[in-house]
Computed example of a mutant assay.
Amino acid sequence: MIFGSRSGDGLSGGQENVVSMARFRKGGALSPLRQAEAYWTGLRRGDDVPSRSQIDPRGLENILSNTFILERIAPGIARFRLAGSLVNEMAGMEVRGMPVTAFFTADARKQLSSAMEHMFDTPAVVELELQIEAPRQSSPREARMLLLPLRSDLGDISRVLGVLVADEGKTATSQRFSITSIAMRSIGKPSGAAEFKAKPRAEATDERKDVNQPNPGFAETQARFKPERSLLEEARALLDRSRAGKAGTPADPAPAKHKGAPHLRLVVSRD
């Protein structure tokens, strides 16, 4: 089906206004990539990376045969944990447990390893343009692969949600992928997101001042413990108190002379 314009004499000779509708009938060859990326984006919370446990096969029902899950097992190496029927068919075998680099040419393996390390560390979304090279085919076919980072149950970014699409054609069991181009997009923070800033730690002098300040809504403030005095300090304090008491006590008054009191007088006569 084509759309064109008519002039007074008939069909116009220009082809710039002709649009072919063949590639829109089934959504195009890149439709599974965009569906997977939209599903992955919907699982994100802010600028965070979705976790592997959030992936529900029902959300990818239309493209399950094109999808796969990778697990990072070493720097630059990731193996298949799950794979759709189309991925197994293109490899000619069951790919579960095998490294993804095994299906690429020697030159392409280094490029893929570097791209995956950048994806895990940044993190980033990686999209690859591939060529399927097989000796039984007269001409190589084109393919595309999309790699979306995921978090594991431990919280580290070591899982991948991947999608693989290829041009229609006869599948050969000895095919290998070569990389034509690599596009990487870093996962940035959404615009207008406020940055988190930790509150500066109070200095020691401020902490001592705020210890006994009232705190509404919580338990009442507690008084500080006084340092315990040693036995020597207690003995000195006791000695000081005893000396102070003796210095303040008035001396005993002299016995007062009793006036008019009866007394005996001894009289000695030498006559």
Rank of each mutant, 00 (worst) to 15 (best):
V87C: 00
G92A: 05
T101M: 13
A108I: 04
L86T: 05
A108W: 03
N17R: 14
E61I: 02
N62L: 14
S242H: 11
A83Q: 00
M93S: 09
F3R: 12
S191T: 11
P75Q: 01
K259V: 13
A198W: 07
G42N: 10
I69A: 03
N66Y: 07
I77R: 03
R224G: 06
A237D: 11
D206I: 14
A166M: 06
L161R: 06
R241F: 08
D48Y: 08
S53F: 06
R23K: 12
L30H: 01
M1Y: 06
A251P: 15
K226H: 13
S113A: 13
G28K: 07
V100R: 00
D47V: 00
A204E: 11
V126P: 00
V49H: 03
S51V: 08
Q35F: 12
I77D: 04
E195V: 07
A235S: 10
G248H: 06
M145N: 00
E129G: 15
S7R: 08
R224Y: 02
G27E: 11
E142K: 10
S158W: 07
A198Y: 05
D56S: 05
T205G: 05
G169N: 04
E233R: 13
E117A: 02
S53E: 14
G13R: 13
D271S: 11
E16S: 13
D240H: 14
R241W: 02
A251K: 15
S138K: 13
Q15T: 15
E129N: 09
G27N: 05
D271L: 01
K170M: 13
